[in-house]
Design a binder for these strands. Structure first.
Lengths: 181, 181
DNA sequence: CGGAACGTTAAATTTTTTCTTAACAAAATT
DNA sequence: AATTTTGTTAAGAAAAAATTTAACGTTCCG
């Protein structure tokens, strides 16, 4: 009789999965994804697809918690909606290609960073230049304006580089420089 | 009399700086650096160096808040201690090269991610293989073990790639693929 | 050696975030 | 049309994080 044998094997399998689920959650936590969302994703990682009720059951969380967290995971493209005929329940599948998750997450972040800062810099540089060019202002202030202007101007090199990095990842060109295998 | 004129110019200069300070703080917040730490860094960005008291005064925060936040900023290498003779106050300077900050921050994160997950995967794969190779276990379970094993095995491609990316950034080789200018 | 100046650690408070219970809205089937 | 099923928004409770006040240790100087 191997019923007990199989039972132990099943536990062992779940234990193995849990090791990885733990690590994935912790990683996502590292990047500012909330622990709950991390656990949801990591759990789905080992399943083909799940609906909200199955997740709730598996993780012992409330339904609204599922709803909001899954939506967050969709936003960073780590979970996709699957259209399933015959049921009214929404079913979801985890994105299992980490290259895709990497791209979706970091490119989104970095683009936001570039936009945010480039806009601020443009505004600031305009003002600083006006100050520098106004000869009726004291040299102390004008020099400070010049110094700041140059600092900001230099930082644009970084933001333009970041943009190129994003582009290189989006087009997958980066894999010709740094191959996947 | 240009006293008033200069005064207005000074305000304008500070306003310009504030635009950028805001953007930098928001960016850092995006990456999980606490708002206080972000403001400290962003403020220092426009100064040559500052000591804890100057920061406290400028930002209206408590001394312990400074102390802990500056230490956090040191950890991610965004702020460096400057050794200043003649005073007992610790003085700090912001790292102004964003390429360096980028490297320090993301490489640290990514390396942590790789280590964490590779270790978990190694453990899990060992167990899964044992299950798969034990022919006394039901096929259902063995097949699931195999499926999971393959999934994890595939994910290692990503982690190895991430490691190479880190390496490429650390050695600055990446700038031959994606030039700074 | 005593006291002052700085910085850090500890404990407590406040604030922010996250999660849950409850009410609500939409859709579909009876 | 009414009821049931499913998902979402709203409001309140619980948990976590950040910040401050207070106490402590160290170092330097008189």
């Amino acid at each position: 009789m191997d019923k007990a044998h199989n039972e132990r094997a099943k536990e062992k399998l779940e234990y193995a999965q849990d090791q990885v689920i733990e690590a994935i959650s912790e990683t996502m936590d590292l990047y500012g994804v909330t622990p709950a969302a991390g656990r949801i994703y990591a759990t789905m990682y080992f399943k083909d697809q799940m609906n909200l009720d199955e997740m709730r059951e598996e993780l012992g969380m409330s339904k609204p918690s599922m709803s909001t967290n899954v939506r967050k995971l969709q936003q960073i493209e780590m979970v996709k909606k699957r259209f399933q005929r015959g049921t009214r329940k929404h079913t979801y599948a985890a994105e299992k290609d980490f290259f895709h998750s990497f791209m979706a997450y970091f490119c989104q972040m970095w683009e936001r960073e570039v936009k945010l800062n480039m806009e601020a810099i443009a505004k600031a540089e305009k003002l600083l230049l006006e100050i520098y060019e106004d000869e009726s202002i004291s040299n102390d202030i004008r020099n400070e304006a010049k110094k700041d202007y140059d600092l900001l101007n230099q930082s644009k090199v970084y933001y333009r580089w970041l943009e190129k990095l994003v582009e290189s990842i989006r087009t997958e060109e980066i894999y010709t420089f740094i191959p996947k295998e």
